[in-house]
């Protein structure tokens, strides 16, 4: 019962950024930090980076390296593309479905080689980057903010991937898989809400 409550709370948080951060967060420290903070305060984006990092780290060093390079580049590129097209994607079932897939893969202990993981990271980056672009429309210093977002994605992916790679003890691997199952559970709840038109 307590676990269900936690998952529901996390799902609420994960669903919040779409509405709460329709505009770029103002850190009072300029557009670079605005971009960084925007990512860190968007639970759905953080979950996406976490999921990719954990899955990549589970696949080994080469996969983690591939994710640390491709995810921020795709994310940043998609934000720029979204700004250029002046069209931002709404958070939807595709974003949630992809995260469920990633969470389940982490929970199942799937080990993806780098050549498979890289396109997955690119896809996640594009989907979330296009959504992020919506917050940057009409923002001052949007290009610097994109750099802040991409830097935050790179740092988080790198740290998460390295953490997952360095987990050697059996119980830590299990903990990692449990983390994946939580991501999947949160996103399943989100998907249910989206399908019922609640979110």
């Amino acid at each position: 019962m307590r676990t269900t409550a936690w998952i529901a709370s996390l799902a609420l948080l994960a669903g919040a950024p779409g509405a709460a951060h329709a505009h770029l967060v103002n850190s009072g420290l300029g557009p670079f930090y605005n971009g960084t903070l925007h990512l860190l305060l968007s639970p759905s984006d953080c979950l996406a980076v976490l999921a990719v990092g954990l899955l990549a780290g589970q696949g080994g060093k080469a996969s983690a390296r591939a994710a640390a390079i491709t995810l921020p580049l795709a994310w940043g590129g998609a934000v720029l593309a979204g700004l250029t097209l002046e069209r931002a994607a709404e958070p939807g079932w595709l974003e949630v479905a992809l995260l469920i897939l990633l969470g389940v893969s982490v929970a199942a202990g799937v080990r993806l080689p780098a050549w498979v993981l890289a396109p997955v990271a690119v896809l996640i980056g594009i989907v979330h980057g296009l959504e992020t672009a919506g917050a940057l429309v009409d923002s001052d210093g949007a290009l610097v903010a994109v750099a802040g977002i991409a830097t935050a994605v790179a740092v988080l992916t790198l740290l998460t991937g390295a953490l997952a790679v360095s987990l050697q003890a059996a119980w830590t691997r299990v903990a990692l898989q449990v983390g994946g199952s939580w991501i999947a559970a949160v996103e399943m709840l989100m998907l249910g809400w989206i399908l019922q038109g609640i979110s």
Partner: peptide, 15 residues
């Protein structure tokens, strides 16, 4: 702290 963490991460991933 962030730099040291990144330093450690890059060593682990053998960039």
């Amino acid at each position: 702290g962030l730099i040291l963490l990144l330093h450690r991460a890059l060593r682990v991933l053998e960039f």
